[in-house]
C-alpha cells in the first residue's frame, strides 16, 4: 500500500474543526496554567504552612509523573467521585494543572529574583502585605519570566495531542476518525503534524512579539 495524498481534501473541513478544538483547549489550558501557576507560586512562598506543605506535595507528584497518567487520574477519578465532566473540561483541567505546576516553579524563581527593596519600599509606603505581593512583587516577577513560560505554552500545545486518548475530539482524534474511514494513517497523521507545526509557528511568532513589547516597556 503506497501513499495517496488525494484522500486529504475530502476531510479538510474535519481536520480544520479538529485544529480549532486544539487551539481552544490550548488557550483554555494556557490561561488556567498561567493563573494557576501564579496562585501556586504565591501559596508556596507566602502561604501558611498548612497550605504550603500539601501544595508542595502536589507539585512534587505532578512534576514526577507523566501527563498521560495524570489525565487518566483526572478523567476517571472525577467520574469515580460522581463528577461526570465532558472530556474537553477534564482535558483542560489536566493540561492546565500539569503546566500550572511547571509555571509555578518558574514564577517562584521570578518572585525570589525581585529586589527585596521593592517589597520593603511598598510596605513602608503603607501597602498591606497582600497588596504588596499582588500589586508590586508578582507583576514584576511575572514580567521577568515570560520567556520560559512561553516555552511551556509551546510544550502545552504539543502535549494537547494527549487529550485525544480521553476522547477529546481535537486534531489528533479527528485525524484518527478520518483514518478509520480511509485506512490511510500515514497521510492523515502527516497532515495533522503539518497543522500542529503551523499553529506552533504562529504561537512562537506571537510569543516573540509579546517578549519584544515587554522588553520595550522596561
Amino acid at each position: 500500500m503506497g501513499l495517496d495524498f488525494t484522500v486529504l481534501p475530502a476531510f479538510f473541513a474535519l481536520l480544520l474543526v479538529g485544529a480549532g478544538w486544539t487551539i481552544a483547549i490550548t488557550v483554555a489550558a494556557a490561561i488556567l496554567s498561567f493563573f494557576g501557576g501564579i496562585f501556586l507560586a504565591v501559596i508556596a512562598l507566602y502561604g501558611p504552612a498548612v497550605l504550603r506543605y500539601p501544595f508542595r506535595l502536589f507539585a512534587w507528584l505532578f512534576m514526577g509523573t507523566p501527563l498521560l497518567l495524570q489525565l487518566f487520574l483526572i478523567y476517571f477519578g472525577l467520574i469515580q467521585i460522581g463528577i461526570d465532566l465532558p472530556a474537553f473540561v477534564a482535558g483542560v483541567i489536566g493540561l492546565g494543572l500539569h503546566f500550572a505546576v511547571y509555571n509555578s516553579d518558574i514564577i517562584q524563581a521570578g518572585i525570589l529574583a525581585v529586589d527585596r527593596g521593592q517589597y520593603e519600599g511598598a510596605r513602608t509606603l503603607g501597602l498591606s502585605r497582600v497588596q504588596t505581593i499582588a500589586r508590586i512583587v508578582v507583576p514584576q516577577a511575572v514580567r521577568s519570566v515570560i520567556p520560559p513560560i512561553g516555552n511551556n505554552m509551546i510544550a502545552l500545545l504539543k502535549d494537547s495531542a494527549l487529550v485525544s486518548v480521553i476522547g477529546v475530539t481535537e486534531l489528533t482524534l479527528t485525524a484518527q476518525l478520518a483514518i478509520s474511514r480511509t485506512f490511510r494513517p500515514f497521510e492523515f497523521y502527516l497532515a495533522a503534524a503539518a497543522c500542529y507545526y503551523l499553529i506552533n509557528l504562529v504561537l512562537e511568532a506571537g510569543l516573540r512579539h509579546i517578549e519584544r513589547r515587554i522588553q520595550m516597556a522596561r
Binding site: K158, D159, A161, F186, Y189, A192, Y196, Y197, L201
Partner: peptide, 14 residues
C-alpha cells in the same frame, strides 16, 4: 514543532 504522539503514530501506524 510537532507532538511526539503524532510522530509515534506516523511511525507505528503509517
Amino acid at each position: 514543532g510537532t507532538p511526539a504522539l503524532i510522530q509515534l503514530f506516523i511511525l507505528y501506524f503509517g
